[in-house]
Design a protein around this nucleic acid. Structure first.
Lengths: 223, 223
DNA sequence: ACCTGAACACCGTTCAAGT
DNA sequence: ACCTGAACACCGTTCAAGT
């Protein structure tokens, strides 16, 4: 994330804990115990310190989550080798890379709702998307809007997918969608009634790439 | 929402508070004081009762938020008069209606991340989208996937827009995106560097409909 | 400069008891 | 059946003080 590292003065009392240690421990807690267990108190005991010591190294919990995401992006995002030559493929490949890395973050929803998500590690991929779109004939402004549309679609897919997955592991809660779909009136909602039996199976399929292709095609085809 | 109303027996002590009163009061609190102030305790004092009395009428806070959204959808969603005859316009009009109603909910993010969002009031609009897509030549399964893509795009746009707006009212927090964009290397990220000065202006524009048209066009054009 | 202890101002929810 | 009081098991963060 774009935040400058906390200024490290050479004078004064030597630090006992570091930003790196905080992030490393936070990563471990999330991996072993889940996002819900990542509290400032739990994190403090994890590094053998007190909650308030953390506030010397991160501004607040939101910054902590952002740092965690940036750490994840920096270690997971791999530039494609070799990069695709076709500009449309450059767009698709970059979007898919961002999507896959973010979808693998269990704590992504907390961050998605917490900041504008401009990880420096992801900038190269944003560049690929904007560059690819302009190479296909869009103006720079149109390409930025196109990138935004791709980002909306990507963020939405991750949000819906992740919360659905969480609800599934959330033990017993019944799926209310099924109740609604069971009581549909075929006269008023004929298509939904026909699709109802297959709805659960259809929505559990991973159609991110398919929808992305449609969106990119639509962005690149003048109408 | 699909939850059946709490069974109202005719025997036993008469209820002092009702689901309707709970929702009405919750709506007022959100409108007057913001989503953050909507707590079970605040709500209880708002209707002159205790927190635990609420749990006789709603299962938990998640259900409360869902009921609140359904109430909002039921009173805000208006079917277009007359409905467009062109199937593509039916899709666009229905998606825009859903988008506009949800975007007007300040608490939408809390619900977006809380359930699969199958408000019964919205089903007619989902039907329009699926019906319109099939009328344009898609199979029913393709149309359901198309609806999902539209929903991802819509949810993502609302999520990003709403959290950005919240952050803006969140007083002083600097926009870190600006810091990143100020320090871009034009050699490595030429397009982003060129777009940087206009980025804030471009992303503040409302391009939901524009992106929606591109997505729907892409979904309807075989490639 | 860095860390600690104690406290503030809250949460959602459970439990046992009352009417 | 419906409601209450008290408590449980937490949160993030501030403040004043210590080294």
């Amino acid at each position: 994330m774009p935040r400058p590292p906390a200024p490290r003065k050479t004078t004064g009392r030597p630090a006992r804990i570091s930003r790196e240690e905080i992030i490393r421990t936070a990563r471990r807690i999330v991996a072993e115990e889940g996002v819900d267990r990542l509290t400032m108190r739990r994190l403090a005991t994890g590094i053998g310190s007190t909650p308030m010591a953390l506030y010397h190294h991160v501004r607040d919990k939101e910054e902590l989550l952002l740092l965690l995401l940036d750490d994840h992006a920096a270690r997971s995002l791999r530039r494609p080798e070799p990069p695709p030559t076709d500009p449309r493929d450059r767009v698709l490949t970059a979007a898919l890379a961002i999507h896959d890395v973010l979808a693998a973050c269990p704590w992504i929803v907390e961050v998605l709702t917490a900041d504008d998500l401009m990880s420096t590690s992801a900038l190269w991929f944003v560049e690929q998307i904007v560059a690819g779109l302009t190479a296909c004939g869009l103006t720079l402004d149109q390409a930025v809007h196109g990138y935004r549309a791709i980002w909306y679609y990507t963020a939405g897919e991750i949000l819906v997918r992740t919360t659905a997955a969480r609800r599934r592991t959330d033990d017993d809660r019944p799926v209310y969608r099924d109740q609604v779909f069971a009581g549909l009136d075929p006269a008023e909602l004929p298509h939904l009634s026909r699709a109802a039996p297959r709805w659960a199976a259809l929505t559990s399929q991973d159609t991110y790439e398919q929808g992305l292709r449609a969106l990119v095609n639509g962005l690149l085809t003048p109408h």
